[in-house]
Computed example of a mutant assay.
Amino acid sequence: MLKTVGAVIAAVIATAVTVLLGVAILPGLFGLEQTQIIVQLSAFRLLLAILAAGAALLAVVVGVLLRGSRRVLPFVLASALAVVSVTGAVVTASRGVDDRVVAGEATDLADQVTVLAWNTLGDAVDPGTIAAIAVREGADVVSLPETSAAAASAVAAAMTASGRPMVAHSTASDAHGTSLLVSTGLGEYAVRAPSPTGSTAIEDSETLIADPVLGRGPTLVAVHTTAPLPSRLDDWRAELADLAGRCVAGTDVIMAGDFNATLDHLAGLRGDGDLGDCDDAAAADAAAGLGTWPTELPAVLGAPIDHVMASPTWVSVSAHVLTDVDGTGSDHRPVVATLLPRTPR
C-alpha cells in the first residue's frame, strides 16, 4: 500500500514539474508571463532547457528500471521533457546569442544616436571605467540605474575630457537613484516633473524621464523598474504597463536601462512592437538571447533583463551585449544600441 501511495506521489510531482517547466519555457503561450514563480523561472530559459534535458534522461533511466505498465509514465514524461528542452534551446537561439563587440560598427551618420545602458550596482563600477567604455562605444546617451549623482557627474566630466561632452541628470543623490547622461550634441534636456494629476507608476519608480527643452528630439527614459519580488509584483506589473503606454503610435521615445523583465515578461504588453509599439534593439540585431544579469553566469545562461527600446520613429542599426566588461564591479552587463531616425531630421 505504502509503495503504491509513494509511486502515485512521485508520479504527481514528476508530472507537475514537467508542466511547470513547459509553462516557464513558453509563458506567453499560456498568458502566465507575469505570474509569480513563472516570472522568476522564465527569465532563465536555457538553464531550464538544460534542467529539462537532465530530467528527461533521469525519466528514461527510471522507465528502463521499471516493469510492466509502470514504465509508461516515465517514458511519456521523458518525451515531454525532451520537447520542452529542445523548445527552450530553439527559442533562445532564435532570439540571438551574438556577443561580438565591434567598436564603431555603426555608420557615421549625423542623426544616429548610440545608447548605452548599464546598471552599475550602486556605484560599484568606477566612473572612469564607465566613461572609457561609453567613449569606446561612441555613446550619445548613457542610462545608469543605481548610480549616484556624484558618480554620474564624474562620468560626464571624464567623457567630456575625452572629447564627448555630456550633461548628467539624476533622480537622487545617492546610489539608489538612476542617472542619465546626454550628449550636448543632442541639445538641452530637462528632467520631466511628475504629472500634475499625480505621479504615475513609472514616475514613482527610480526611472528618469527627460524631454528636449526645445521640443526637437526624442524623449529619453532611463529605466529602472521595481524587481519582481513577491511583495512588489503588482508594482512591477504597473510600471511595465506604464512604460508600454508611453510607447504608442506618434510618440518619439528611446528607453534604456534595467527593465527587470525579459521579452517574455512583456508578451501581454505588446502592441506593434516588443513593448507597446517600441522595438527592442537587441532583438532586431540577434542579441536578445544573451543574459545581462547576473555576470556570475555565462551570458548565454543569464537573464536578458536590460534593454534599449525605441518607438517606430527609430530603426536599430546595431546592438550588442558587452561581455568583455564582466568583473568591473557590476552584476549587470551593459547593452549598447545604435539607432537611426526613420526619416531625416
Rank of each mutant, 00 (worst) to 15 (best):
237 R>N: 07
45 R>P: 04
197 T>P: 00
210 A>W: 05
208 L>R: 03
112 Q>M: 13
205 S>W: 05
123 D>W: 12
127 P>S: 03
194 P>R: 05
211 D>A: 09
177 G>I: 05
266 L>R: 05
120 T>C: 05
222 A>K: 01
189 Y>T: 04
144 L>W: 08
248 V>L: 07
148 S>P: 08
314 W>P: 03
168 A>E: 06
215 G>Q: 11
335 V>I: 10
292 T>C: 01
83 V>A: 14
265 H>M: 12
167 V>M: 03
48 L>S: 07
176 H>S: 14
190 A>T: 14
276 G>F: 10
61 V>Y: 10
18 T>Y: 12
130 I>D: 02
236 W>S: 07
26 L>P: 00
78 A>E: 09
29 L>N: 00
10 A>V: 09
181 L>F: 02
166 M>H: 00
31 G>K: 11
135 V>D: 14
166 M>P: 00
168 A>V: 09
60 V>R: 12
132 A>E: 14
120 T>N: 11
247 C>P: 02
98 D>T: 09
209 I>S: 09
75 F>V: 10
136 R>A: 13
294 P>D: 02
323 T>V: 13
51 L>F: 13
306 D>F: 03
214 L>C: 00
264 D>T: 12
18 T>D: 12
256 A>C: 10
120 T>M: 06
132 A>Q: 14
225 T>P: 05
93 A>K: 06
5 V>L: 15
157 A>P: 03
262 T>N: 10
173 S>C: 00
309 M>L: 15
44 F>N: 08
263 L>E: 11
50 I>R: 03
222 A>E: 01
317 V>A: 14
192 R>I: 00
97 V>W: 03
176 H>F: 07
49 A>T: 07
33 E>L: 09
159 M>H: 08
